[in-house]
């Protein structure tokens, strides 16, 4: 399960696809102070990225994946 949603923290794990985007954006919309853990994320679909950019949740752990770390992480 690439998307692990808890009360106020979500973890994106492995390769996260567009299928997760709706659930994820709903979760973000309904959390007061959402926190997101990207440490184990190996790929982020563009739909998830734009969701993150829109809701700007706090990032508790940065991705280890080199591509995400170099190009995506600075945006979040």
């Amino acid at each position: 399960m690439p998307l692990e949603l808890r009360d106020d923290e979500a973890s994106l794990v492995g390769s996260c696809t567009a299928d997760e985007a709706l659930e994820f954006s709903d979760w973000l919309a309904n959390s007061a102070q959402p926190k997101v853990d990207l440490a184990a994320c190996t790929h982020l679909h563009a739909a998830l990225l734009q969701t993150l950019l829109a809701y700007k949740p706090a990032i508790t752990a940065r991705p280890a994946d080199p591509f995400l770390a170099r190009w995506i992480s600075p945006l979040l």
């Binding site: 994820f24 954006s25 919309a29 990225l49 829109a54 809701y55």
Partner: peptide
């Protein structure tokens, strides 16, 4: 930027 309430993750805006 659309209001968050109108945000649609499947409309690509990137």
């Amino acid at each position: 930027e659309p209001a968050l309430i109108d945000f649609d993750p499947y409309v690509c805006r990137l």
